[in-house]
């Protein structure tokens, strides 16, 4: 469980010198070559450890609104960990240590007064494997809204239709809303999971390799719906391949062994990587 948010105490826990990281913060931002004004999410000097083993090392990164930011890098780089920190899903993991701050709209999401369930409604999450809940398609989509206390039938119906449409699934399931969700194909299930997150009208959508289990056609459909969604949502995506990253990225961040190596807007990271390691990775010269 993470401890308090004030960084001073936890610095010593992690054995990291504070002054050093303060310097590196400015360095990092300059290195990325771009300061985003009023970022949707600001990650400040975040370090994170499982059982004392660092998984993220002093990450500083801005995620702009209404764009797709991709986190890419080889396995074990800490992408999933960072993603799960943004909606505090890692609160559930025991024996972890964290320092640094994560701000959503300028507000520290790890501040003690934050209501975690409400935060998770604002920051949706889609997992690597499609994980429909037991029950029907309708029940899946409306699970979140119902927990949030929405009861009016018409309102729920509205949410159901809107989110399935946004996830580009409506046409395929509109006649079978009361079928068990696990009868859908893998691709449909994954879009159902996206719809399920969208039903809460989140501000941010976190997607962790959402297409890793899908065929190319389903993948294309999911990507298509992401293009639509980025107009109104802040999207953070861990892609399942460099190609996918290059296709969808508005901003790209490269993670290696818990470090943020490089962060660039647009496709620059793929066409003109600054770091040798990034270049090796995006050109496929990496192990």
């Amino acid at each position: 469980m993470r401890g308090d948010t004030k960084s001073g105490k936890r610095n010593t826990e992690l054995g990291i010198r504070n002054t050093e990281s303060e310097e590196r913060k400015t360095e990092n931002v300059m290195m990325s070559g771009e300061m985003v004004l009023n970022p949707k999410i600001r990650i400040e000097n975040v370090s994170y450890a499982y059982n004392g083993v660092l998984a993220l090392k002093d990450i500083t990164l801005d995620v702009p609104a209404c764009a797709i930011t991709v986190f890419l890098g080889p396995a074990g780089g800490g992408k999933t960990t960072l993603l799960r920190l943004i909606n505090r899903l890692n609160d559930l993991v025991e024996n972890t240590q964290m320092r640094g701050r994560i701000l959503l709209d300028g507000q520290d999401i790890y501040a003690p007064e934050v209501d975690v369930p409400s935060l998770r409604r604002r920051v949706g999450m889609v997992f690597a494997l499609p994980l429909p809940l037991p029950g029907t398609i309708r029940e899946n989509v409306l699970y979140g809204p119902k927990l949030a206390g929405i009861k009016e039938r018409t309102r729920l119906e509205e949410i159901l239709v809107r989110s399935l449409q946004q996830a580009a699934l409506w046409d395929e399931v509109k006649d079978r809303l009361d079928d068990p969700a696990n009868r859908l194909s893998g691709g449909q299930q994954q879009r159902l999971c996206i719809a399920r997150s969208l039903a809460l009208e989140p501000e941010v959508l976190l997607l962790d390799e959402p297409t890793s289990g899908l065929d190319p056609i389903s993948t294309a459909k999911v990507e298509e719906s992401l293009y639509q969604l980025k107009r109104s949502y802040t999207i953070v995506l861990v892609p399942h391949s460099v190609q996918q990253a290059a296709r969808v990225a508005d901003y790209a961040a490269f993670f290696l062994m818990g470090e943020l190596v490089e962060h660039q807007p647009g496709k620059a990271l793929f066409t003109a990587p600054r770091d040798k390691r990034t270049e090796d990775y995006v050109t496929g010269r990496f192990g």
Binding site: R121, G124, M125, L131, L133, G144, L147, A148, S197
Partner: peptide, 15 residues
């Protein structure tokens, strides 16, 4: 995973 999904959709542990 069911519990994790429920959490991620803003559910409390008891929900």
């Amino acid at each position: 995973e069911f519990r994790t999904v429920s959490f991620s959709l803003g559910g409390t542990r008891w929900q």
